[in-house]
Computed example of a mutant assay.
Amino acid sequence: MTSVTTKKHPNGLDYVEIDTRFCKARIFLQGAQIDFFQPAGKAPLLWVSDADDYKPGSGIRGGIPVCWPWFGTHSNPDFPQHGFARTRLWHLSDTRIVDEAVELTFSLALSEDDKCFWPHDTQVQIHFHLTDTLKVTLVNRNLGTKTVTLTQALHTYFPIQDVHALVAKGFSGAKYIEFGEGPYAQDGDEVTFNRETDRVYTDLGPVQTLHTPEGVIEVKRENSQSAVLWNPWIDKSKWLARFNDEDYLTMVCLEAANVLEDKLVLEPGQTHELTTVIRWK
Rank of each mutant, 00 (worst) to 15 (best):
N11M: 03
G12Q: 06
G12I: 12
L13A: 09
Y15N: 04
V16C: 07
E17P: 02
E17R: 06
F22G: 14
F22I: 08
C23Y: 00
C23T: 09
C23G: 10
F28E: 02
F28R: 10
F28Q: 01
L29C: 01
Q30K: 00
Q33V: 08
D35P: 09
F36E: 05
Q38S: 06
Q38H: 00
P39W: 05
A40D: 11
A40L: 10
K42M: 08
A43S: 15
L46G: 06
V48I: 11
S49G: 12
A51L: 00
A51T: 05
A51W: 01
D52I: 08
D53Q: 10
P56Q: 07
G57D: 08
G57Y: 05
S58H: 11
I60N: 10
G62H: 08
G63Y: 08
I64L: 06
P65G: 01
P65V: 02
C67T: 03
W68K: 12
W68H: 11
W68T: 14
P69G: 12
G72K: 12
G72R: 14
T73R: 14
H74M: 04
H74E: 07
N76V: 05
D78L: 10
Q81K: 14
H82G: 00
G83T: 14
A85F: 06
A85T: 08
R86M: 03
R86W: 10
R86D: 04
T87L: 02
R88K: 13
L89D: 15
L92E: 02
S93P: 13
S93T: 15
D94M: 01
R96F: 08
D99R: 06
D99A: 10
D99L: 03
E100G: 10
V102F: 04
E103T: 00
T105R: 14
F106P: 08
S107W: 03
S107L: 06
L108H: 07
A109P: 05
A109N: 13
D114C: 01
C116L: 13
C116D: 04
C116S: 05
H120E: 14
D121N: 07
D121M: 09
T122L: 08
Q125E: 15
I126A: 05
I126P: 06
I126K: 02
F128I: 11
H129I: 06
L130G: 01
L130K: 01
T131Q: 10
D132M: 09
L134E: 05
V136T: 15
V136D: 00
L138P: 08
R141F: 05
N142D: 02
